[in-house]
């Protein structure tokens, strides 16, 4: 954000001030639909430093999220998506904002849609049958993890569920077993990874390490941050892509334009599913909270959001990871 005439600030100096900044708008956004509808938005940052996302700072972080929603209210904006960690901090609970007369969403329905549709597409392109595959979900008891699991149940051979909280995992796993699905669950990833053909990772833990993989396994990294490459055993044939992302075929613009500083991707006009969900809600004039709470994302909501996405010319992002566009997607990565 500092211009070229100023010296770059070292990280230590940025860290010294970053989390003192009150939540505020950073840039305006303009988006166009395939149908010709246009809409404007504002990106508001909570200024929660990544290294402050811990239990010790939980109360302060929740307050920052609430302050950010208050900014939305003061600016008389009627729709907001609480993206990334902000919805995790509130666990999708919007009760505090009932008096604000605004529509809210976590954006997790469309993120989940892009994850499962991306996995299905990758499997198809690699000649892997979903119905014969074992699908491992890492972070299975989170909102997106549960949504993906519920969407995939009955469509795959076996669900392998992994989460840190064993009580929640047991409750969720047992429910699926009671419904008659093939399920194995464990908080120990090494017990599940060797059996997986397809993997969805929606966990944010820095402690994940995936090893003993089958050859030619497909991995969708949809966690925050997307850095699973560093944590996966280097096995030839592993296809790892960053999921939960869409590509706005009719583009978007930022004002000020920070696209050269951040939100940089190897293909043009990529966006997070959660952000695109609120764009679709604006295009469609949806006047009620959409994705909210935890465990409330149904397969119907996933399908509805995905249909709306395609209707407005927003498609699955091409397959890419930190090395760039992946071979299978190269022909489809430009708009």
């Amino acid at each position: 954000m500092r211009t070229s005439e100023l010296e770059e600030l070292p990280i230590s100096k940025i860290k010294a001030i970053y989390d003192y900044i009150p939540p505020r708008g950073i840039f305006k956004m303009h988006v166009k639909s395939l149908t010709g509808i246009e809409t404007n938005g504002l990106y508001i940052d909570t200024f929660i430093a990544p290294d402050k996302l811990n239990a010790q700072n939980l109360r302060a972080n929740i307050q920052k999220v609430k302050d950010a929603v208050k900014v939305v209210h003061h600016l008389n904006i009627k729709m907001a998506i609480l993206g990334g960690f902000t919805s995790l901090l509130l666990e999708g609970n919007f009760n505090d904002f009932e008096d604000y007369d605004m529509v809210l969403t976590t954006g997790n329905s469309l993120t989940s849609a892009y994850v499962v549709k991306g996995l299905e597409k990758a499997a198809r392109e690699h000649g892997i049958s979903m119905s014969e595959s074992n699908v491992l979900v890492i972070g299975a008891t989170g909102d997106i993890g549960m949504a993906c699991t519920n969407y995939l149940k009955g469509k795959v051979n076996r669900l392998l569920l992994c989460a840190r909280n064993m009580n929640r995992l047991k409750t969720f796993g047992q429910r699926l077993l009671d419904e008659g699905h093939e399920v194995k669950y464990s908080s120990d990833l090494s017990e599940l990874a060797p059996e997986a053909d397809l993997i969805i990772s929606v966990a944010s833990s820095s402690e994940i390490a995936i090893s003993s993989l089958k050859p030619k396994v497909i991995i969708c990294d949809a966690g925050y941050p997307k850095n699973l490459e560093e944590k996966v055993e280097k096995v030839p044939g592993v296809f790892l892509f960053h999921g939960g992302m869409g590509q706005l075929k009719h583009g978007y613009s930022f004002n000020p334009d920070y696209t050269s500083q951040f939100y940089r991707y190897p293909a043009p006009h990529l966006g997070h599913g959660c952000i695109i969900e609120i764009i679709l809600m604006a295009f469609e004039g949806i006047k009620e909270n959409f994705s909210m709470g935890k465990g409330n994302i149904t397969s119907e909501k996933i399908d509805l959001m995905y249909e709306l996405s395609l209707k407005h010319g927003i498609e699955l992002a091409p397959f890419y990871n930190s090395d760039g566009i992946l071979e299978a997607s190269k022909n489809n990565s430009t708009t």
Partner: peptide, 28 residues
Amino acid sequence: RGNALALYAKALDTIGIPGEKSIVWIAK
């Protein structure tokens, strides 16, 4: 310093200066 700049930023917000402008001023 952080608390002082935070209060200054909040004052600018209350006056009505857009956050996307004041953040650039502070960052510079």
